[in-house]
């Protein structure tokens, strides 16, 4: 069971960094508090869940939803690129990538 007040300010800053979201010191204070409350609310589910109830990642008790390996029409290149801010040589143009892989 996850105790209350488990999410530190540093953790929030770390996750924000991974998500490429810049937060000011004040925002960090605000969000750390709010997120900690949310984690606390969600943790209360643990109180209801007995050991014999497996955790679910999906609300429906379904498995093996598949489709046959049959080709469906794709978008045209023009359609695919229509939402791109910029394109070149029928490809999506993105700013310079700083490091490989």
């Amino acid at each position: 069971m996850r105790p209350m007040s488990s999410l530190s300010r540093d953790e929030v800053a770390h996750v924000a960094g991974l998500a490429r979201i810049h937060l000011s010191d004040e925002e960090l204070d605000t969000f750390a508090g709010q997120l900690d409350s949310i984690v606390g609310f969600v943790a209360s589910v643990n109180e209801a869940a007995a050991d014999d109830i497996p955790p679910m990642s999906h609300p429906l008790p379904l498995t093996n939803v598949t489709r046959p390996d049959e080709v469906r029409p794709s978008l045209t290149a023009d359609e695919a690129l229509s939402g791109a801010p910029a394109s070149e040589q029928q490809r999506f143009l993105v700013p310079r990538i700083l490091s490989e892989d």
Binding site: R67, V71, R72, S74, L75, A77, A80, Q90, R91, F92
Partner: peptide, 15 residues
């Protein structure tokens, strides 16, 4: 259901 052909014209196998 997009096709997987190697060497197709760029961005013609997307959805």
């Amino acid at each position: 259901g997009c096709a997987t052909e190697f060497g197709a014209e760029p961005n013609t196998q997307t959805c």
